[in-house]
Each structure stands twice: as C-alpha cells, then as structure tokens.
Computed example of a mutant assay.
Amino acid sequence: MTNRTFVVTGANNGLGFATARALTDRGEHVILAVRDERKGRAAQAALTGGTTEVRRVDLSDLDDVRAFADGIEKVDVLINNAGVMAPPRTLSKQGYELQLAVNHLAHFALTGLLLDRLAAGADPRVVTVSSELHKKGRLDFDDLQGERRYRATAAYDNSKLANAVFGLELHRRLTAAGSPIRSVLAHPGYAVTGLQAGVQPGLYRTLLTRIGNPLIAVSAERGARPIVHAATAPQVQGGQFIGPGGLGEMRGAPDVVRPAPVATDAGTGRLLWNVSEELTGVRFPLPQPV
C-alpha cells in the first residue's frame, strides 16, 4: 500500500530520519515532525522518494503539540518516535520532568488529538517506539516526576516503560471501542542514534559512545527496521511489540518480542492513562476496558 500519510516525530535525524527514508523509498507521504525547522528542511532535502512535508513541533510544550495536531488534516499512521535521553533533571514548559514530558506525555497527547483523523485513515496505526530498556523501568506513581529522587538513566528507562504501558493500554481501549486503529509497539534494539548526544557527560555516556556503540550497536537504518515493519507489515497485529529477533533483542530481523510483565498489567495501564489525561488535559473518546 502506498500514498498513505505518515507522521514521524523526531524525523530530522537518527531513527526518525531512517524511518522517514525507508517510508519515502516505498513511495509514502511523510510529515516530518521536528523541533528545529532548519534541520527538518535539511533532512527533507536528503529524501528522494515519496513526498514529504516539514512541520515544526516542540514536544516539550503541550500547547505546541495541540497547535501541531490542529494543522494535520490527514494521517494514516502516527509514529511516536522522538525522545530525549538521560539529561540532567529539567522541566518542560508545563513543569513536568522532561523525559516523561517528551517521551511519553507529548505522544500520549498527540495520539489523542489525532485519533479522529487516524480512525478515518487507510490501515490506520499508532506505532509507539519504546526500548529494550523499558524492562528496567519502574513507574512510581508517588514520584512520577522524580521530584524526590532523580537519576537520569533510570528516568529514561521509566519513560520507555511508560511508552510500553501506554501502547498496550491504547490497544485495549481501541479494541473495546471496535476501532480500526492498530496500536503497535516497536523498539530498535541497540542502535546508534543522535539520542545519545543528550546524555549528560559521565561513565554512562562513556560506556555508550566508546564501548557499546563501536562493538555492539547497529546503524540507525537497521534500528529503524522494526519500526517500519510495525508501521507497514500487513501481518502485524494490534498489541504486538516488534523488535529485533536476535540475541538479547539487540540486533536482527524484525520479530514479535515480549514486553516486560508490568507493561501488560491492565491496572498499571489504567492508572498511567488516568494520570496522563490529567497532566495533558487530553481525553480520548474511548471506553475503559471492562
């Protein structure tokens, strides 16, 4: 199927750009959702297939997310990809911890705001990009913002767990509503992307960039394969998690992988959903599963 419209957040570099390239090579129309419009134009110039648009959105500002969503007339597939990784504790415009705000809350809000247009789309899907590191995450609803205790790497893992919990709870609610939209999770394995540039200097960043990346990591193009598969493969089902099928899910061909048990817990899904609606002010027109 070609000529569908894909919205890809964080599409100017890393996994987002590799995903956009793979989609445009298939002849699809891709909306590059980027924070820096200049970088978005440069990425657009490097894409030679399909058709593209550049639209600016700052995912650290929920007002900007709303304005972006208001400008989208048509979308068949939303790929919630953009993120920040392990910065010092920083707050979004609305005062939320930055990794939770960008990686989860902005994409929760964007999905809800675009749900009506997705429902009218061709083979509509929401692909939420998580990480194998979600298995190390923990959602402490008494300290979700890391106000009492903040560790940058742990907060990243927690935000990736929130992505997984959201994607599966969205699947349950779409199913209960009889919606045609498929909610699918994906993760790239261990891929080299621009995301690591935001990690604060220290041992963790050194291990990533000087040891892990050269010895283990795959390219962004290979890391994007599970994301593209989740977004386009006809056999993919709602509620599935697509990742690399190789050893440790670090590399390999796209395959169905298992999320952490906590990510599948319906009670956790309901609780995160309710908190996310409260923090974003976005309400989905979907019933809560019985």
Rank of each mutant, 00 (worst) to 15 (best):
P180E: 12
V165N: 03
G245V: 01
Q145N: 13
K136C: 04
E73K: 12
A119E: 13
G83E: 05
D157W: 12
R151P: 06
V126P: 01
G245H: 05
R38G: 13
T128H: 10
T24S: 11
L174Y: 07
A101H: 06
A266V: 11
A20Y: 05
G14I: 01
A176H: 06
P285K: 09
M250W: 08
T175R: 10
T206D: 15
I211V: 15
N163V: 02
V7E: 02
G245W: 03
V7N: 00
L144I: 04
D64L: 06
R26I: 02
R283K: 13
A42Q: 14
G112C: 09
T111L: 06
E97Y: 08
F68L: 04
Q94M: 09
D116H: 11
T51R: 15
R270W: 08
R4N: 10
T90C: 07
R149Y: 13
A69W: 01
N13G: 12
A162K: 05
A152T: 06
P244E: 03
G238M: 07
A164R: 03
K160H: 08
L207N: 13
L23I: 07
K93F: 12
R38E: 15
R41Q: 15
T9H: 06
R182I: 03
I211W: 14
A224L: 07
D157Q: 12
V184N: 03
G71P: 08
F241L: 14
D123I: 00
P226F: 01
L286A: 13
L98K: 03
P289D: 12
V75M: 11
S130N: 06
D61Q: 07
P226L: 00
V7R: 00
R66N: 03
R4E: 09
V236K: 01
P87K: 05
F284V: 06
L144A: 03
L207D: 14
L15M: 12
G198F: 03
L59V: 03
R38H: 15
H229L: 01
A120F: 10
T268V: 14
L78D: 01
S219F: 09
R148L: 11
G178W: 07
D143Q: 09
V256A: 11
T264R: 14
D265A: 05
L208K: 05
Q99S: 10
A266E: 09
N81W: 00
V275P: 05
M250A: 12
D63G: 11
A224K: 02
A45V: 08
G245F: 11
A217T: 06
I227R: 00
V8T: 00
E28N: 10
L47M: 14
V192N: 10
Q44D: 15
I31Q: 07
